[in-house]
């Protein structure tokens, strides 16, 4: 395959970026999207140019490190991560536009790599169950109904890639936060901190500068793990309940 790539290049956050066009030949349809970028980068390095910086690690769709906008879609045309997207999804002669996630809470580091530490801070605000090592009771002392465990698992598969934020016209992180609130809220072990968790995580996502959720659904449609919008309903349910009960975020 021969392709024309239009790639966002930005040396660092302090300078203005722009689209640069590259021509690429001899691309196999069995290559992954990132392997195609590897080919481009090898050429750039040998030509003495700066290779395109992009984040990636496991390349099997589970670490959540990769993610770019491909022709305006988060992770591209298939519902999967960028690393699991293969070139057979494109046609010979295609022009592909590649940009970083766009959200003020995800500042660009360089080219296609962005800073997603805001997600970690949302987890820090309450995305856990306080169970210091050694304090745990016997695992079978608390049975968990299978349907709750399965639904919790479905929500817990979120890989924190940020596609939901990138796809959302409001750059909202609601699906990310809701996935964790749902996972922990469905487990009996998560009940004691349930109210505080939702209130504090939502307060933190506001502080990070993510937009509000207006139930558009682009997040779920672009989520490589198919996290459902139902998690957002659960979050809103838990949030209202907690606020009515007088729970307020930690300052």
């Amino acid at each position: 395959m021969t392709l024309t790539l239009r790639v966002w290049r930005q040396k660092d956050p302090s300078v203005k970026g722009g689209i640069v066009t590259y021509e690429l030949a001899d691309i196999s349809p069995d290559m992954s999207f990132l392997e195609m970028l590897d080919v481009l980068n090898e050429q750039l390095i040998l030509g003495g140019d700066d290779p395109v910086a992009f984040d990636h690690d496991c390349r099997e769709g589970i670490c959540g490190m990769c993610g770019v906008m491909i022709n305006g879609q988060a992770h591209g045309p298939e519902q999967t991560t960028t690393c699991q997207l293969h070139m057979r999804s494109f046609k010979d002669g295609d022009t592909i536009t590649i940009e970083p996630w766009r959200a003020s809470a995800f500042p660009v580091i360089k080219d296609l790599a962005v800073d997603r530490r805001a997600f970690d801070r949302i987890i820090q605000a309450g995305g856990y169950i306080s169970a210091p090592t050694g304090t745990a009771p016997e695992a079978h002392s608390v049975p968990v109904p299978k349907k709750d465990a399965d639904a919790a698992f479905d929500a817990a598969t979120c890989i924190g890639c940020g596609a939901c934020v990138a796809a959302c016209p409001n750059a909202s992180s609601m699906l990310f936060t809701a996935a964790k609130v749902t996972h922990l809220g469905l487990m009996p072990q998560g009940q004691p901190e349930r109210d505080d968790r939702v209130v504090n995580m939502v307060a933190q996502q506001d502080r990070e500068g993510f937009g509000g959720c207006t139930n558009i659904g682009e997040c779920s449609a672009s989520c490589p793990k198919g996290i459902s919008m139902e998690t957002i309903s659960r979050l809103n349910h838990d949030l209202l309940g907690a606020l009515r009960a007088g729970v307020r975020p930690k300052s």
């Binding site: 169950i129 050694g134 745990a136 695992a139 049975p143 968990v144 465990a149 399965d150 817990a156 072990q189």
Partner: peptide
């Protein structure tokens, strides 16, 4: 055996049987 106890306490959603056990 302690590891499984610890992870369950943290809310790790292990696969379960219909009776709710692991």
């Amino acid at each position: 055996t302690n590891i499984i106890d610890q992870c369950v306490a943290q809310g790790v959603p292990f696969a379960r049987e219909y009776g709710g056990l692991l």
